[in-house]
């Protein structure tokens, strides 16, 4: 059953170039979809459009974002905000800047449950404490009273993951959640997100530029180039043989630990030229 359906979404800078061109993608309930592409391809922009946090200079030109049968773009802003807040969540990229430095962890995590979902303070506190334990944070009660600067980057990312799952959302957008982390921590965090996703059955839109990550956690993926989806495939089929030449070149460009002497394989210029012509990007 499709939970999120993005249809022909076109987004552009106000009076400027298009950033997303007629993007369509579906995420089924409980599905993990990877969203890959190079820097500037518009991966994060899709997540932002869904969550309603596009920068002010960016506007939606046309298209639909259907969440659980309702087109978010037709809702009044306040209703959309509350609906998204109650059913979706974001795991941000940089754990060091994504927590409010002047507030304790506890209220930062429970506020949404109390103010948006109407839980009691005690229930919310118990809930986030359980979640912190679930993301393997030692002494959750203590951490809830601490300020962000007292915690390490890995701890903060665990807190942000727990926080994303706190309201038991139906969809989580993970915006390159491991990019800002130390390589040794990356793997643990990835495993943690995959485990949490499986236990909670949450649909996940996983934005990343790392195909290796996609092969580990995703069931399907969309490949973006210059704001346009060039390939939409199941993960198994994709890694068996990508259909689009750009996807194939992207896959070939991924360094392989099994063959350290192979050298880097950049995406060939003729493939770039072809995909540019195809998406209509100057």
């Amino acid at each position: 059953m499709t939970y999120l359906s993005v249809r022909d979404l076109t987004v552009r800078l106000k009076d400027g170039p298009a950033l997303l061109r007629s993007v369509s993608l579906d995420v089924a309930a409980g599905e993990v979809r990877g969203l890959v592409g190079e820097s500037g391809a518009g991966k994060s922009m899709i997540g932002k459009a869904i969550l309603g946090i596009l920068p002010r200079a960016v506007e939606v030109v046309s298209g639909q974002i259907v969440l659980d049968g309702v087109d978010l773009l037709t809702l009044p802003p306040a209703e959309r905000r509350v609906r998204v807040g109650a059913t979706c969540a974001l795991i941000p990229q940089d754990p060091l800047t994504a927590l409010n430095p002047s507030r304790r962890i506890g209220p930062q995590m429970t506020d949404r449950l109390v103010d948006i979902l109407g839980w009691s303070r005690a229930n919310a506190a118990a809930r986030v404490q359980d979640l912190l334990a679930e993301v393997q944070i030692v002494d959750p009660a203590r951490v809830l009273r601490q300020y962000p600067h007292e915690l390490s980057g890995g701890m903060r990312q665990r807190i942000l993951i727990a926080s994303a799952f706190a309201a038991e959302p139906r969809l989580i957008v993970a915006d390159e959640p491991t990019t800002a982390l130390d390589v040794t921590v990356q793997k643990q965090i990835l495993k943690l997100i995959a485990g949490m996703q499986a236990r909670h059955g949450t649909a996940l839109l996983f934005v990343t530029h790392d195909l290796g990550v996609v092969s580990k956690v995703c069931q399907s993926l969309s490949v973006l180039y210059a704001g346009k989806v060039v390939e939409d495939a199941a993960v198994r089929a994709f890694f068996a043989g990508p259909k689009h030449p750009y996807s194939a070149a992207l896959l070939a460009a991924t360094p392989k630990y099994t063959d350290p002497d192979a050298g880097l394989q950049p995406v060939p210029a003729d493939v770039i030229a072809a995909v540019r012509a195809e998406v209509g990007h100057g």
Binding site: L51, G52, I53, A78, R81, V82, R83, V84, G85, A86, C88, A89, L90, P92, Q93, D94, T97, A98, L99, N100, P101, D111, R112, D115, I116, L160
Partner: peptide, 17 residues
């Protein structure tokens, strides 16, 4: 413009809050 403000927006809070 900071990340934690953007994250708070996704929680469903009003602009004033």
């Amino acid at each position: 413009h900071l990340d934690y403000v953007t994250l708070a927006r996704t929680h469903g809070y009003s602009e004033a809050r």
